[in-house]
Write a protein that binds this DNA or RNA. Structure first.
Lengths: 123, 123
DNA sequence: AACCGTAGTTCGTAACTTATGAACTGCAGA
DNA sequence: TCTGCAGTTCATAAGTTACGAACTACGGTT
């Protein structure tokens, strides 16, 4: 099992960040990590937005987030503790993460509204 | 040849925007379009950041940008005129495009600095 | 110590996506 | 009508992603 590696903040690229956050599962994971006050384990994301994610897939998603520089992961015994690196990233790319998370919220709110309309129409 | 289609602004998703702009060629095209005061043709991007892009590849890149809702393309005779939809997007996702373009500028400036250092060291 | 259960990783492969050359469409001017 | 230009489509090769099965690593039990 290879050791966990994190890019130095100066090696973090916009492209990698955008790519990592262009996946709905990853952006949901990242949003939850960024909001959480304390580290979260991988397995707390086995269900994301009512969808079950296989463990192997989840492991890959965490690797993508980590290698993009978005999160920091530390092994503690049998589990992994993940935290967002948002403060560092915000220093390098001011406002980027905030704007993405904000856009994500706008879109989620809209989706919730649309699905309420739909269930009202059908029920 | 199928007609050009543009998503309505309400159907534009954050994921599609981030995916479209996570490619270095596309983000360079988009940045130039957003800065340009007037529409630009596809062929003005046959060379991007000192790299030649095949016409067919370029055509796909423009399609991705268009379908993500980032640009508007209109055929005028033999050529296509492309403009950025940044004002519309900014209304839907405030600050998103600005933050991405700004991060992109930060990174380009850094790259330029690094390559100057390199050529000074070797020369 | 040997064993078990939990948390996460790796590997192989099938499914999907992207890049590109070749052949095409469609327009404008000679 | 012919020619050339701007961009598109198609076929396919190359690259990426998803996920089950088999694995590692750790901590607690017996």
């Amino acid at each position: 099992m290879r050791p966990l590696t994190h890019p130095s903040i100066d090696d973090v690229s916009v492209e990698a960040i955008l790519h990592a956050l262009s996946d709905p599962v990853r952006v949901a994971i990242y949003a939850e990590l960024a909001n959480a006050g304390c580290p979260q384990t991988c397995s707390s994301f086995l269900t994301v937005r009512d969808r079950d994610i296989p463990k192997s897939t989840l492991s890959q998603h965490f690797r993508v987030l980590r290698e993009a520089g978005l999160i920091r992961s530390e092994r503690h015994g049998v589990e992994m503790r993940n935290t967002s690196r948002c403060a560092e990233i915000d220093r390098r790319f001011p406002g980027l993460i905030d704007a993405i998370m904000n856009a994500h919220r706008v879109q989620s709110a809209e989706r919730a509204k649309a699905s309420r309309r739909k269930s009202a129409a059908s029920g």
